[in-house]
């Protein structure tokens, strides 16, 4: 997994609550058996005016000019600013894959759905929770100032605005450690093979029908 330390990135606002993973990556793209290539289809139904199907050449499709992702000022964004309960619905990891493939490395929102939140960390994406009023303030600033960037410092757990305001964010110690070092969960768990085997033996003895 790629390491995450510090990011100075352009911010893209997505001003809707309860954005579900069906919206982040519609189901027709879930037929793929690969992990990559979902970026061009991220938010497909909102982003394009036609109906997308896997394998389409997205550079030729009609764009929805209203959607922030298509506006010139947000091109190259690496930070997604979103509203509450982001990533609800289906457990599809294709959602973080699509966001990562599109170029996002950080999401900022007041809250996330549990499975999505968890899936982000497995893909080097950092989902940050900030209080509602701070997210609101960020939305106002992004919309007011083209080229708006934020500096996300994982080590220090801060988000710095161009005006020099620093918002502090929380992250679980273990997740932070894994992201900072780009650690692979499976590799980490396999360091405990003996503990798993011991547990398994005991567990099967207690419930031999399993």
């Amino acid at each position: 997994m790629r390491k995450f330390t510090l990011l100075d990135g352009l911010v893209l606002p997505l001003d809707r609550a309860n954005v579900d993973t069906d919206a982040i990556i519609p189901k027709q793209f879930l037929k793929s058996i690969s992990r990559s290539g979902f970026g061009p289809y991220a938010f497909d139904e909102w982003r394009y005016l036609d109906h997308g199907e896997p394998g389409m050449d997205c550079s030729k499709r009609p764009l929805n000019p209203e959607f922030s992702m298509n506006q010139a000022r947000y091109q190259g964004a690496q930070i997604l600013l979103a509203r509450e309960n982001f990533g609800c619905g289906s457990s599809r990891e294709h959602a973080p894959w699509a966001l990562e493939d599109f170029g996002f490395a950080v999401i900022i929102a007041p809250s996330y759905a549990d499975i999505f939140f968890n899936n982000c960390f497995k893909n080097g994406l950092l989902p940050i929770r900030l209080p509602e009023d701070q997210v609101d303030a960020l939305f106002k600033e992004v919309e007011a100032k083209p080229g708006y960037r934020l500096v996300v410092d994982l080590e220090a757990q801060t988000i710095r605005t161009p005006a020099g305001v620093a918002y502090k964010f929380e992250i679980e110690a273990f997740r932070k450690h894994c992201l900072l070092n780009g650690l692979d969960d499976i590799g980490l768990t396999l360091q405990h093979v003996e503990a798993i085997k011991t547990f398994e033996t005991k567990h099967r003895a207690a419930q031999p029908w399993l």
Binding site: P96, N118, K122, E200
Partner: peptide
């Protein structure tokens, strides 16, 4: 429910 990375994690480590 779990994501695909976790599916792999369970496959490899139970």
């Amino acid at each position: 429910g779990i994501g695909t990375s976790e599916v792999e994690h369970v496959m490899a480590t139970q």
